[in-house]
């Protein structure tokens, strides 16, 4: 498995292959929808990680959020965040708090990098934020 640092932040070829469509309309629809949903998921993950004590419910929530976000990343080619979600999900399921906390810190770097790529790619494809 590739190391997160070597993975692309956003690979449009994956999105195009998954959707079977390379039109700007599909690319902007997919990326704007992903940006909206992923922002919500990341906020929830970061809120959950701020607690000193992670209960079983909080760990289950983290695993569930990462599982869903991982699939969304796979659809649009957000490989780096997808890899991070896989690690986070596994750590949450195994109740490995050390890896969990360390990977949540990585999220604070990986997400802004992806968000910046999303904004740039959307702009390049003619998408204007409302």
């Amino acid at each position: 498995m590739a190391k997160p640092a070597t993975l692309p932040v956003l690979d449009l070829n994956v999105l195009i292959a998954m959707y079977g469509d390379d039109s700007a309309e599909t690319i902007t629809l997919a990326l704007s929808g992903f940006r909206r949903e992923a922002t919500h998921y990341v906020q929830q993950l970061q809120r959950g990680g701020q607690h000193d004590v992670l209960t079983d419910n909080a760990l289950a929530d983290t695993a569930r959020l990462c599982h869903s976000l991982k699939s969304m990343c796979g659809l649009v080619g957000a490989a780096k965040l997808m890899q991070l979600c896989m690690t986070l999900e596994q750590a949450a399921r195994q109740q490995d708090l050390i890896i969990l906390q360390s990977e949540l810190l990585n999220l604070a770097e990986v997400w802004p990098e992806l968000l910046s790529q999303l904004n740039l790619t959307l702009l390049q494809h003619g998408y204007a934020d409302e």
Binding site: A30, G33, E37, S68, L75
Partner: peptide
């Protein structure tokens, strides 16, 4: 997940 459903709809 609404995003995933939207993707299927698009496909």
């Amino acid at each position: 997940d609404a995003f995933i459903l939207n993707a299927y709809q698009r496909m």
